[in-house]
Design a protein around this nucleic acid. Structure first.
Lengths: 241, 241
DNA sequence: GTCATGCTTCGGTACCTGCCGAAACGTCCG
DNA sequence: CGGACGTTTCGGCAGGTACCGAAGCATGAC
């Protein structure tokens, strides 16, 4: 009873969309774009809703296949199910109208600036820095945008020099453009984008700002990005105006 | 008043998703995936809702930027706004769970089979035939799936031999995989996929079945696909079991 | 054991939205 | 002009759902 009347041969598009059609659930997914696992309570506080409400939303998202969960003791960790879901959310966000309301509080402004400068996007780098990296790699002939994005032979060699191993995943494409919703220009996603981001963390080139998705480029990072990609220092350090 | 409370720096994902979260609106979009412009009344009948209801849904979709409209006299034609919207809908559909209910009526079965065999998907070819074309092109070295889909030099030459001109659109990638929701394997989208489909129509290789998205491969088409791609005849003509 | 913590379940309320039919508004045609 | 047709607007109804607080249930700490 009460089964949604659907045309036989068509996929149930609406069922998936309905999961993201609520502001709170969408906010959860955007938060989870940082690629980490969050607890129910963390997400509830993040959006300012009761924990019970968050539980119900997360149930729906897990049941719908968008989120994966992991239970540890009395904690329930949720994360995006896979990179396909992350891509879907990115695409949807890119389709949304620009900033809806200008930020009100000063702290919100600062938070916004930090995110716009450099942040993680699911498992790779985004923001001004992320876009700059992608463009520098293109300028140096490591990436080729001719008829679809592709890693060149030089690009492969470059990864090897840096000691970055890219796991061979047949399901996931090596390089993929991801539209930045602050820069409106693409940055580098895909297996290579993820490996590069992981390498930057483990090498101490970047560090997270608190528990947010925003990251800072360290002194070591500035040197590395200058040396390996020719990126200027002032672009990598956050401007204060 | 009643403005959705949204976090300052985040795009309004939910607003876009909400447009597709309704079965009727989603059905409209799936119908519009054939790339043609439909009238309000046609869409209303297609989904079995009152015309007034369809009007309201279409208003929302146009206001949200998913659909574009064109007024001609007392008719209002709507179509998908651009290929980015088509891609988004395809991705969402690919995420949806498989067939929900088995087809009931015989005519529905026939319609489903015809669609599964060969159909247009926005502006390119899908279904068994669409997938076969993509795979044959890969086998012949016209497409390269290594680290993202790419058109090879041979592929470019092949298009030239056929007299297919691909409009240079910097915003749209030349070749793009599009996951087929009947075959569960990718077929060829992007500017090349569209140009190839257009060429197939104008050369009389394929024709539409009535006013649906389903297409038939003509005798001329069978010969062309055999000659240019080595596709066997029996794969191109619809099986009747 | 007892207590704190994280999560879930369960009513109940308020709101939103999809739907329709009727009436009004255009445009085209005879 | 008048009638047909495609579309839009407007109440009003019905169903769905996001939200909360309170109570219950685990797990881990003491």
């Amino acid at each position: 009873m009460n089964v949604q009347r659907t045309h036989a041969a068509e996929p149930d598009l609406a069922a998936v969309a309905r999961l993201l059609a609520d502001g709170t659930r969408a906010g959860f997914c955007l938060a989870l774009l940082d690629g980490r696992a969050w607890t129910v309570t963390e997400l509830a506080r993040h959006r300012g809703v009761a924990v019970s409400t968050a539980t119900e939303h997360l149930n729906a998202l897990v049941r719908g296949g968008l989120l994966a969960e992991e239970r540890q003791g009395r904690h329930r960790y949720v994360r995006l199910a896979d990179s396909r879901v992350a891509e879907l959310i990115e695409n949807l966000a890119a389709m949304a109208p620009g900033r809806s309301t200008p930020p009100r509080s000063l702290s919100a402004t600062g938070r916004r600036q930090a995110l716009a400068h450099a942040r993680t996007c699911y498992d790779h780098l985004a923001g001004t820095v992320g876009v700059a990296i992608a463009e520098a790699m293109t300028a140096r002939g490591l990436l080729d945008w001719e008829s679809g994005l592709r890693l060149t032979g030089d690009g492969n060699a470059w990864l090897g020099e840096l000691g970055i191993a890219v796991p061979a995943d047949t399901r996931r494409s090596a390089v993929r453009p991801c539209l930045d919703w602050t820069e409106r220009r693409p940055h580098l996603a895909g297996a290579v984008g993820a490996a590069l981001c992981r390498h930057a963390f483990t090498s101490g080139w970047i560090t997270r700002i608190g528990a947010t998705r925003a990251v800072t480029v360290t002194a070591a990072g500035r040197q590395a990005f200058r040396h390996h990609l020719g990126l200027p220092d002032d672009l990598l350090s956050r401007k204060r105006e």
